[in-house]
Every structure is written in C-alpha cells, then in structure tokens.
C-alpha cells in the first residue's frame, strides 16, 4: 500500500487492529498513549474515546497528543492527532477547547475535520470565531484534502459545527455554500442554515431543500441527506425518508433523529400524534 493510500485510510475512526486492545484498562490506555509504540498510542487515543474514559489524566494526555510530532504518515497526516481530537469531542470536557481551537490550524485536513467535529460536540461558543475564520480560509498553514476534489477545508464539518453551535452571526458566510460544487457541502450548508434560521418558515425552506435531495441519483448522497435530516430532526421529512431508495437501517436511524426531536417537547410517557406516526413508519421498515 502506498503512503498516499494508507493516509487516506487512516482517517477512518476505527483502527484495523482491535485485538491490540482486548485487555486494555483505562490506566493502561493512558500509559500506552504516552509510550513509544506509535500503533499503541493511536489505538489508545481511539480507545479512550470509544469507552468514554473522561479521567482528568486521559484529557491531559489527549490534549498533549494534539501536538504530537512523532506519528506522521508519508503524506503528512497526523493519525494520532486525529484520534485524540475525536476522543476529546466524545469525552465532553471543555478544558480541551483552547487546545482544539489551536489544532484548527494543523496542516492535516483530517485533523481539522476531526477538530471541527469535536468542537461541535463540546458546544463551547468560544469556538465560533475560529471556525468562521477557517470557513473563510483565513488560517495560514493549512493544506487541502489529499484526495479529489482536494477541498481546502473540511467545509461540511465546519458548517455543521456552526449550525449546532447556534452561530447566527455566521449565517451570511454560510449562504454561499448552498451553491458549492460539492453536493455534500451544499447539504451541510442547508442543514446548518436550518438550525440558524430566525423563523420556522425560513427554516422550512432549508429543510425542504434537503428533502428534495432524497431523490438524488447518487446513493451515497441520498445516504448523506438521510443523516442530515436525522441530525436536524426535520419532522416534515418523515414520509419522504421512509420512501427513499436506501438501506432500511439508515432510514431507521434518520427517523430515530426525528422521533427524538419530537420527544424533547413532551413529558414521558406521553406521546404526540407526530411521534406515534414516526414510530409507525419505523415499524414498517424493521
């Protein structure tokens, strides 16, 4: 496998040698993260996130790993930093925010992608200005994605983070991305603007744009839109999701997103009519 290929694969979240971690404990994983064996370090970073080890030492060591120089692929990627960023997002400790913001200037595209997603999960408004700067390509030293179409920035992750962070001030910057040449980026812009819209009517137009894309000819894109609609929990999409030509598993996950959004507004075990309708659709897809 060429360096380029291994770099392309190594941004995937799950390491390919899980047997290495069969007997890991939190203490061992934290120790491995500081060890010499690069494979064990990368795996330990993933493991701490996967098993939600939010001990202060784990956070400290993951923050240090965000600046690691030892683990670098031939193509210039930093797999350990990517895994450390993903883990910090899952662990929910906002102490990591300043270090993550710093890592938005990493040369590795996939580190920046993982960091944007982590900042989205941590939900700290301090990340909004640097994410807006990255969206406008104003952070020096960043290299584009190693694969076509060689995007300059992980725009989809940045747009989604700004939406989740309720960064209404970013909306004017996000609008042009509705016309981006990469469909996935357009969807992320619509998803983000849906979350940032000042009124329900305005939000609906973005949600409806996503519904239209459920008819896209490309299965990969239909799958992506399913995930977007599930993430925003857009109720009017329920029927269209159920009818989409894609795997039932993915449609069920999207409908779960709609259902849980509905449930936020009700007191258990009360169920709104809409919630019951979504479950009826889910039952048919089992």
């Amino acid at each position: 496998m060429s360096a380029m290929n291994s770099d392309a694969l190594s941004h995937l979240a799950e390491p390919d040698n899980p047997q290495a971690g069969g007997h890991l404990t939190p203490a061992q994983a934290i120790a491995n993260l500081q060890g010499q064996d690069l494979g064990l370090r990368v795996y330990a970073a993933w493991w701490l996130g996967r098993f939600r080890v939010s001990l202060p030492e784990a956070i400290d060591q993951l923050i240090i790993a965000l600046e690691d120089e030892a683990d670098q692929t031939g193509a210039g990627g930093y797999p350990l930093r990517r895994n450390a960023a993903r883990a910090l997002g899952k662990l929910g400790d906002c102490r990591a925010v300043p270090a993550l913001i710093q890592a938005l200037s990493c040369s590795d595209f996939y580190v920046r992608e993982a960091v944007a997603q982590a900042l989205e999960m941590l939900g700290d408004a301090a990340s909004i200005p640097p994410l807006m700067a990255l969206l406008q390509n104003q952070i020096p030293g960043t290299l584009p994605a190693p694969e076509p179409p060689h995007l300059e920035q992980p725009f989809d992750a940045i747009l989604e983070a700004l939406g989740t962070l309720k960064a209404t001030e970013a909306a004017p910057l996000i609008h042009p991305f509705l016309n981006h040449e990469v469909p996935r980026v357009r969807f992320s812009a619509a998803r983000s603007l849906y979350q940032l819209a000042p009124t329900e009517a305005a939000a609906q137009s973005f949600g409806d744009q996503l519904i239209q894309e459920l008819n896209n000819d490309d299965l990969q894109l239909r799958r992506a839109v399913l995930a977007d609609l599930g993430a925003i929990g857009y109720l009017p999409a329920a029927e269209a999701i159920a009818q989409t030509l894609a795997e039932n598993s993915l449609k069920l996950i999207a409908l779960k997103g709609l259902l849980e959004k509905q449930l936020q507004g009700s007191t258990p075990p009360q169920l709104s009519k809409a919630a019951i309708q979504v479950m009826d659709l889910m039952d048919e897809l089992l």
Partner: peptide, 10 residues
Amino acid sequence: HLTVQARTWL
C-alpha cells in the same frame, strides 16, 4: 435510547 423507551410506552 429514548427511541426504544418511546416505542415501549407506545
């Protein structure tokens, strides 16, 4: 999972 809980209520 809230979704499983909700289906159980139903």
